[in-house]
């Protein structure tokens, strides 16, 4: 990928019982990268290591070609939303605005006020009186109002109802209308990523299993559902992951059209991101 806003190469972090193992991917300008994986797969660890919140053992993380530790000013161009609010509950959106205004040179107070109006957030109400959705919207408003070029969202939409999630996803889609903007979004909610992501990076047990465009996953990946005898006739090189149900085998393949031509006795379905995730996590992968 050329013109990468964020480039992660061989990012490695060792904890007792967990290894983030040489994670690599990059986010091109004007795109949304979805980071998926089961709980504990290493999504948040990747984001934290990229942001310098934890120390990496190995690897390189560069934003616009520069390491964050070498140029603190890069942080002006990065907006971050974590899961849950990071402001104390007695603060108000107005005070959050004042704090952020003092932090960022690029802070745009009128843009922040616009977001507060758009999200229907009262400026002088204490955060403790806000719903989870309102808190998330406040974090997003704060993250977007210093005109970042890269938005990093770590499970930001988890625990929100579909209506609020849809509102928020629209904001993200607007954000990437500017071709210099990008988003890195980790989420459990694959439907959100299916709606907005351009690329999907799948992390499983600390390793990147794949980093592909969403369209490639949508249009090329498929699931072969077949009986055991058909399963044994499948070329192992075509099997990405497989799992046996009570009555059939489910086989993930990277070329569903080819599978449709070759295996007439099998049903070939489109694969959703959830299907891919489940088969990789719960199924077997050929050696």
């Amino acid at each position: 990928m050329t013109d990468a806003i964020l480039q992660i190469e061989n990012l490695t972090k060792q904890y007792s019982g967990f290894l983030l193992d040489h994670v690599s991917f990059s986010i091109p300008k004007g795109s949304i990268m979805g980071l998926i994986g089961e709980n504990g797969a290493g999504k948040s660890t990747t984001i934290k290591a990229a942001l310098g919140l934890i120390k990496k053992e190995d690897g390189k993380v560069s934003f616009w070609g520069q390491e964050l530790s070498m140029n603190e000013n890069l942080r002006e161009d990065i907006g971050v939303v974590f899961d849950g609010i990071n402001f104390y509950e007695t603060l108000t959106p107005a005070k959050v605005g004042s704090i952020s205004n003092a932090a960022y040179k690029q802070w745009n107070s009128s843009l922040y006020s616009d977001y507060l109006r758009r999200f229907k957030l009262p400026a002088d109400k204490e955060i403790k009186e806000f719903s989870k959705g309102m808190k998330t919207k406040l974090c997003i408003a704060a993250a977007l109002s210093h005109n970042p070029k890269l938005l990093i969202l770590d499970e930001a939409t988890s625990g929100l109802d579909p209506v609020i999630r849809d509102d928020i996803l629209d904001v993200f889609l607007e954000f990437v209308q500017d071709e210099n903007h990008s988003i890195l979004m980790s989420s459990h909610i694959s439907s959100d990523l299916e709606k907005i992501a351009d690329y999907i990076t799948f992390i499983h047990q600390g390793k990147v299993l794949f980093c592909k465009s969403k369209d490639e996953l949508r249009y090329r990946y498929g699931i072969i559902r077949c009986k055991t005898e058909v399963f044994h006739s499948i070329d192992p090189s075509e099997i990405l992951a497989c799992r046996k149900d009570d009555y059939q085998w489910n086989v993930l393949t990277a070329d569903k059209e080819s599978a449709r031509r070759k295996y007439k006795n099998a049903v070939i379905d489109d694969a959703s991101i959830d299907d891919i995730l489940l088969l990789y996590v719960k199924g077997e992968q050929p050696k």
């Binding site: 934290k48 942001l51 310098g52 919140l53 603190e72 000013n73 942080r75 002006e76 990065i78 971050v80 974590f82 849950g84 990071n86 402001f87 104390y88 932090a103 960022y104 040179k105």
Partner: peptide, 10 residues
Amino acid sequence: NWTPYALVMP
């Protein structure tokens, strides 16, 4: 959980 947020600010 302020500190991680503060550390992503400039």
